[in-house]
Every structure is written in structure tokens, then in C-alpha cells.
Simulated scan of single mutants.
Amino acid sequence: MTTAHVSPTANLNPVAAGLTVAVLALNLRPAVTSMGVLLTRIDTAEGLSPPLAATLVALPTWCFAVGGWTAWRLRARFGIRAVVSSALGVLAVSLIVRTLPGDATIVAGTTAACLAIAVLGALLPVIVSTATPGSAACYTACLGTGSAVGALLTPTGVAWQLGLGCWALLAAVGLVVWQGSSRHLATPAGAALAARVSPQTLIPRGTIATLTVHFGLLSGVTFLLMGRLPTILRTAGLTQAEAGYHFATVMVLGVPASLVVPYLARRVPHAPLAVGFAGSSITGVTGLMISPLSVTWLWTGLLGIGIGALALALVDLGRRTHSDPDTTAALSSVVQGLGYTLAGVLALGVGLLQIATGTWTWPLFALVVALVGQALTGTTIGDVRAAPTSPEVSR
């Protein structure tokens, strides 16, 4: 079952398609990595309690779970154009809201921003699967670039509110670009047709469950590093400037790692790639746990390479469904929805473990265990399809 979502006009204009994918992908990470850069300053200025700080790190994954799980139904009911436009608008407004005074506004703004990002993230594989052939590389590269620019370009010499709020401009630019390019998107053949391919109709269940656990583990590790790595490095004895440098290194190295993923995914079996990315992260985390002040550049470099695992998992969603947009939307929702739920539990659990033990040794050991699980579940091979007699999902 397929539904055309990108018209031939869009396919004949690779520059416009690439620009659209790039701007949308760039909006998926700065809201998270900028929080990681400024979390210590926000804590100092606002007096955040340790549990609230841990919650802010885990919050994106829970929001991604809710938003990812509902994205397929929103697309089926309202169409991809309206849903993406609304998500970008909410993202821009919420990034301003979370800079207003009070703990409640920080939490509320971060929650709304992450829900919007979740919907965008779940629907981007659908857009990429029906766009030009080079869109997958553009998608993963800009996803990594968004992480890097959030780490590198977030202003730290000004008030933290400006450092967080400035990323609303990127969301506004994304909305303008999307409004201009989405007119080339064909109207779906019918919401009911798309709704028949729901997460409940996907098979085989074992493959989907393993993919979900794999995505949850790697997302939990990735977002913990985005939110906590500067704190981990400062606790180990690095200065704020040194910790910021190494954090930026991890995010920057994620860009070329993400860029080569689509190329490698077409030529190398999935299992060795997944195990290789997990192995790189295992070595990096182990190095930080055992000897954080010795060859720190090596440990953070390996972590930057390991971030490519997330790009591989996202690109793999479309490949496993043979680029069918309806099946891709359903698979993306279930894998990201339930996967990010697991990631949130992992992120909060590691944060609370650090609070309980007063050290990062045991939390980093927990990350190594999670990465071993990521490597094992990453060996799953198999395609996902909709059941041949899929009943229409009631709305």
C-alpha cells in the first residue's frame, strides 16, 4: 500500500527538496543540546533542584515518546502539511516560553518544544522516503549538524534566556521554508487509506520489538550524553571551557559520522554497522569512567563516532519498509514512541543513580551495560510490512 506524498514537481526540484529536509532536520536537536550547554548556568541562576535537573535531561525522551507515537494518527487525520506547520509553530513559541521566569515555564516550554520536535522527527523519515535520492544523506548530516550547532553556537557569554531562546529563530525559518515548499506536496489519497497502516498492523512483531528496544537504548545513551556530558567532564576535573570544547567535539564528530551512514547502509550489512557504532561508544564511555583526564580527546572522539548509531536507526526505518510512506509512518511512530519511553526511563534512572551515589562511576557503568544491549539488539535483520488484511483504524 502506498500513498504519494511528494509530487513529481518536488522530485524534479532536488534543491528545494534538499533544503526542506535540511531545515527540518536542523530543528531536531538544538533545543536539546543548548540545554546541555547551559544546564549548569541555569542551575546556578535559578537554583534548580537535582531531581528537576535530572528530569529536564530525561524530559525530551518522554516527550519524543508521546509525540512519536501519535504522529502517524495526526498525519492520517490532518495531512502532513498541516501537522508539520503546526509543529514548527509550536516549537518556535515554546522555545521563547521556556525562557520566562519560574521552574514551571522551563518545564512547560521544554515539554512543548520536545513534543513538537517528536512529531517532526517521526514524520521526517516519511518525507525523506518520498523525496529525492540524496535526501537521506542530507537528513542524517543535518541531524548531526543540528546537534553540533546547538553545542557550538549557543551563546554562553550572555543571559541563559537568550542562549536558549535564540533557537526559536531557526524554527521560524523552518516554518517559512516549509510553507513555501509544501505546496509541491500532493494531497494524500485519503486519510482513511493511510490510517489502515497503523502500528498495530505491522509484522513481524519480534522484529519490531527488537528494533524498538534497540532504538530506546541508543536514544537514552545519546540524550544522556547531550544533556550530561559537560557536567560529567567538569566533575572529573576539567574546566568549563575544556568541558565545552569536548562536548562540542562529540557533537561535531557526529556530523561526518551521520553523513556517511546512508552511504554505508547501502553497502554494508546492518548488523556490523550497529555493533561498530555501539563498540565505539562503549570504548568512549569506559575511558571516561576509568581515566577521564587521560587522552580525553580520544574518549570524546569515540563518543562522537558512536552517535552515528542514531542516524543509522532513523535511516533504517525507511529501508525496512521499502520506502512505503504509510508503513514508514507507522513503524516510525511505534519505534520512536515506545523507544523513547524506554530512553526516558534510562535517562532518569542514570540521573537518579548519580544523585544517590554522588559519583559518575556507577552511572557510566550503567551506560556501558545499555550500550552492550544496544549492540546485541542491533544485530536484528528483517523487513517490516503491514499485515495483508489490515482493518481500518477507527479515529
Score class of each variant (00 low, 15 high):
A309M: 14
A243K: 03
P199E: 10
S332W: 03
T283C: 15
G244L: 00
T341H: 09
G216D: 00
S280Q: 10
T239V: 06
H322Y: 14
G308Y: 01
L225P: 12
S294H: 14
L302K: 08
T222E: 12
L253Y: 04
G254V: 00
A278E: 08
L273N: 07
V285K: 14
V268F: 07
A257S: 15
L264Q: 00
R320T: 11
F215I: 02
V255F: 00
H322N: 15
T239K: 07
V252H: 03
L314A: 14
V268G: 06
P325R: 01
Y263I: 15
R320G: 13
V275L: 08
S332V: 04
T321W: 02
G301V: 12
L202H: 01
H322P: 03
G216T: 02
L218Y: 14
Q240M: 09
G339A: 07
T286M: 14
F277D: 02
L293S: 06
V295C: 12
L218K: 10
R267N: 14
D326E: 04
L238F: 05
V268M: 06
R266Q: 15
V334W: 05
W297Q: 09
Y263W: 15
G276A: 12
P269M: 13
I232T: 09
P256W: 05
L229Q: 05
V335P: 06
S280L: 15
T327P: 03
H246P: 07
P199F: 05
T231W: 06
G301N: 00
L303C: 13
P204R: 00
S219F: 03
G284P: 11
L202E: 07
G220D: 08
L211A: 11
T327D: 13
R234L: 12
T212Y: 05
P262A: 12
A311V: 08
L225Y: 03
A278Q: 00
T341F: 14
L338G: 06
